[in-house]
Design a binder for these strands. Sequence first.
DNA 1: TACCAGGTAAAAA
DNA 2: TTTTTACATGGT
Length: 301
Amino acid sequence: MSAAAAVAPLRFGVSEPYDLALSLRAAASFAHGRVDPAATTEEVLRSPVRIAGVATLLEVREAATEPPALEAVARPAASPEAVEALARRLVNADLDLLPFYERAYDHPLLGPLTSSLRGLKAFRPATLFQMLVMAATEQQISLVAAYHIYGRLVERFGEPVDGLMVFPRSQALAEASLEELRECGLSQRKAEYIGGLAQLVSSGNLDLEALDSLPDDEVRAQIMAIRGFGLWSADYLLIRGLGRPDVVPEGDLGIQTLLGRLLGDGGRLTPEGVHRVLEPLAPYRGVAVFYLLAGTRLGLV
DNA sequence: TACCAGGTAAAAA
DNA sequence: TTTTTACATGGT
């Protein structure tokens, strides 16, 4: 089959409710107009990914609303099983929002917000490696500064597909010199962290994808054993990379500030304060934080 | 200009 | 054992 041949879209159901267009708008609002792991248009998730080692453009769009279904197309074509698995992961298809909405119903802020944002889910990145590199890049500096650095890494070491860049292979970052990594704007330390992580992954000594089947605490233990990755990075991976719905990095400055403004006295909360104000939303505290962030970005709170 | 921003490891006390 | 420090970029 030639690359130009028509590719049949692959259709799959997602848990109800789901609003892809709303999720795309929320994702775009987080990007500060800069790099986004998933490039978006109005209605279609266009994601540069690697499937069986091949740089591929994966497009996901809405196919039906009741019950919600999506369709995915990969170019070049790939095995339907791999395409569906990756598409389901990108859109967080298996997350069930209804128990979260039930929990949030009585909450003064999240009650109205979950009704405005019904069907919203966070996208997940294609790989956990990519997520950890993002985490290390974002450590301590502003998100805007981190996005610039991250963009340079992807531009320099990634692989083009249809005008977008697939995130670099671990091998590419493992082979990069510390100086090359620093030229992207990383500190010496972070260059070491990311280079070290890339070597662990590319050598086969660390199987990040195997973390998916482990409980939260075992994932934390494995991540925190890697130099440069502490509790914050482990929690960041759990909520954003693995979609574990109850995880919140309580030491996160951005979350402390956000929750202080929305649920506290206006000032930044302590980690204990973050824990206290989110307690009523367990076991969906991480999802709740995402809704508060999205609500802020979209001008709803 | 100086300071802070979605941390972390290593040095110093 | 606990506290302090260095780190790189970008916005204010």
